[in-house]
Design a protein around this nucleic acid. Structure first.
Ligand SMILES: [Mn+2]
Ligand SMILES: [Mn+2]
Ligand SMILES: [Zn+2]
Ligand SMILES: [Zn+2]
Lengths: 134, 134
DNA sequence: ACTGTGGTGAGAATCGTTCTCATGTTGCCC
DNA sequence: GGGCAACATGAGAACGATTCTCACCACAGT
């Protein structure tokens, strides 16, 4: 029951979706949909921008990629491990490190409970300048 | 040297900027620039949308309002206390509570240092459903 | 009053993202 | 190995928040 849910229609392995997955495998930092679209073009494939957006959204929905927003509000994407985590991102080159913070998880839940808020989610991203970029 | 910086030109107290400040004083949750623009209209004032954006950006720069992005990437604004803090936001009605987390602050700095990242900043927002909205 | 520096606003322009819809693909049953 | 329905795609239009342009206004100081 992990991968096949009879409720939702099967996801078909099309050339386009493979191209997006392949592009995602090629970088470790966060990239915009348009940058990913460009990467695919450079790999010689042709995939419509709308399809790139659709595929990224589906992958995010499925938890296979993380999406966050840069300071301009643009969505940026990256393939990620499947466990809950946050990111330490280099403001200059984009180098990204996944971090976990059990204490923070506990803290956010405690704060929420204390104020009677339910159905909690949170966002936490850390930005800085990586050693390479100093 | 806190409020008057001879370098930067004086900020003139115009009718428009007063209207934005007045609107900001009228709510506790986060609102979009357009919603704030509407509020001003409802108060009988007339201020151009571009001016609302300009004023909000200036206030944010000055640290008098906080700006964050909702899940759609839209900028939303709220007048805030001047100390560093984060927000517990009701996903349904927008009711917002300011929270502080010294432990989290320490944790983010420790993580960053551990990986050699410098010049650290972070974003942390908590979303949930408030008691009223349950 | 004169003038220079800000400030304003209507509308155009930007630009990331989503939508439309006619057309291609895939999975599947026979 | 063909037929069909559901799914997927892409070109371009549409959307929508934000920013830009630039002609015009408002104030402070002389
Ligand atoms: Mn977390
Ligand atoms: Mn903090
Ligand atoms: Zn870097
Ligand atoms: Zn609420």
């Amino acid at each position: 029951m992990t991968s096949t849910d009879p409720q939702r229609p099967a996801v078909r392995p099309t050339r386009q979706r493979r191209a997006v997955a392949s592009a995602l495998a090629g970088f470790d930092d966060f990239r915009s949909a348009q940058e990913i679209h460009d990467l695919i073009s450079q790999q010689g494939e042709s995939v419509g921008l709308a399809t790139v957006y659709r595929t990224l959204a589906a992958l995010a929905e499925a938890g296979e990629v993380d999406m966050l927003r840069n300071e301009d509000g643009e969505a940026i994407w990256r393939s990620c491990s499947d466990t809950h985590h946050h990111h330490l991102v280099c403001r200059s080159c984009g180098a990204t490190i996944e971090v976990e913070g059990p204490a923070v998880e506990r803290w956010t839940n405690a704060i929420a409970a204390e104020h009677g808020y339910a159905d909690i989610s949170h966002t936490l991203e850390i930005f800085g300048t990586c050693p390479e970029c100093r």
